[in-house]
Amino acid sequence: MSILDKFKLDGEVAVVTGAGKGIGRAIALGVAEAGADVALAARTLSDLNAVAKEIRAIGRRAITVATDVTDMAALDHLAQRTVDELGSLTIWVSNAGGLPDGTPRYLTRTSEKDWDAQIDLNLKSVWMGAVVAARHMKDGGAIINTSSRAAFGGQVKNGPYGASKAAVNSLTSTLSLELAPNIRVNAVAPGPIPTENFDESMGIKSGEDREKLLQHIGIPLNRYGREEDIAAAVVYMASPAASWVTGQCLYVSGGR
């Protein structure tokens, strides 16, 4: 097998949660371009249908499943439909997450309700996704969790989110031990990427606002990330090129 062939996903079947827009959409398109058929999951079916149309246009199969990732039964339904309609399940990308209401918070000013919502969305969903995926990956596979640069170090006015993503890293490490040697479990941690959710949570309303924030952050590579940067990292983690990689978190953050 040539080195480039090791990055192909021919014959694989991937589930991607949060696939309707932003980074999730890019990941879904990326794994499809690499050769995988894809089950697309998110809450808004119309968004998923648009992504599915793009995937089918490049010759891959795609199904759409409206899914609440904080519900174990919904995730199990997603996995079962994937197996029933696409024939197997070999890659699971737990990408859905973020800020439940788009509002960053200080830890000491977060209500119990808001804390629970953050943990359910960013951590509990990842744990449940791995449990469900492992149940259906009969011949091995790869699980990739979306973490965040915010998982590293303290966070000013984003404590609940940072804590939940740090926990995703710990969860990933432990799952990689529990599910070895047949299933590899890794994480990809994006830095700042100006998606719709990012702009909303950071209060960005113009290109000037975005540029000011970039200079304040101080990214060594001097640009924001692109959704495709994360898709490329996920394709690597899912592919035979990463067959000896498990329990790792790859920070894709421009050097910050």
Rank of each mutant, 00 (worst) to 15 (best):
residue 119 I to E: 12
residue 128 M to L: 15
residue 40 L to D: 07
residue 100 P to R: 04
residue 13 V to E: 05
residue 150 A to C: 07
residue 150 A to P: 02
residue 6 K to C: 12
residue 50 A to K: 14
residue 22 G to H: 12
residue 96 A to C: 04
residue 63 I to Q: 05
residue 17 T to F: 11
residue 249 C to K: 03
residue 45 L to G: 01
residue 69 V to A: 03
residue 153 G to I: 07
residue 103 T to N: 04
residue 254 G to S: 02
residue 251 Y to H: 11
residue 35 G to F: 09
residue 21 K to E: 07
residue 114 D to E: 14
residue 37 D to M: 09
residue 50 A to L: 13
residue 16 V to E: 15
residue 207 G to F: 08
residue 161 Y to S: 09
residue 180 A to K: 12
residue 235 V to K: 02
residue 133 A to M: 10
residue 241 A to Q: 14
residue 60 R to M: 11
residue 87 G to K: 00
residue 99 L to A: 08
residue 161 Y to R: 00
residue 244 W to T: 05
residue 201 S to K: 07
residue 108 T to G: 03
residue 170 S to R: 08
residue 149 R to C: 04
residue 171 L to E: 01
residue 97 G to V: 07
residue 131 V to G: 00
residue 239 S to H: 05
residue 186 N to R: 02
residue 181 P to A: 05
residue 219 I to F: 03
residue 21 K to S: 10
residue 70 T to I: 08
residue 214 L to Q: 04
residue 86 L to E: 04
residue 158 N to K: 05
residue 180 A to V: 02
residue 133 A to R: 12
residue 211 E to M: 08
residue 6 K to H: 14
residue 56 R to T: 13
residue 179 L to D: 13
residue 172 T to R: 14
residue 52 A to E: 12
residue 124 K to Y: 07
residue 162 G to H: 11
residue 38 V to L: 00
residue 200 E to V: 06
residue 71 D to Y: 02
residue 223 R to I: 04
residue 150 A to T: 11
residue 169 N to P: 01
residue 198 F to Q: 04
residue 106 Y to I: 01
residue 105 R to S: 06
residue 93 V to A: 09
residue 111 S to G: 14
residue 133 A to E: 09
residue 235 V to M: 03
residue 24 G to K: 13
residue 219 I to M: 12
residue 99 L to T: 06
residue 204 I to A: 06
residue 160 P to V: 13
residue 194 P to E: 07
residue 80 Q to A: 10
residue 69 V to I: 03
residue 3 I to R: 15
residue 7 F to P: 01
residue 172 T to M: 13
residue 185 V to Q: 02
residue 66 A to M: 00
residue 127 W to Q: 04
residue 188 V to I: 11
residue 185 V to C: 00
residue 216 H to I: 13
residue 94 S to H: 05
residue 22 G to F: 05
residue 166 A to T: 09
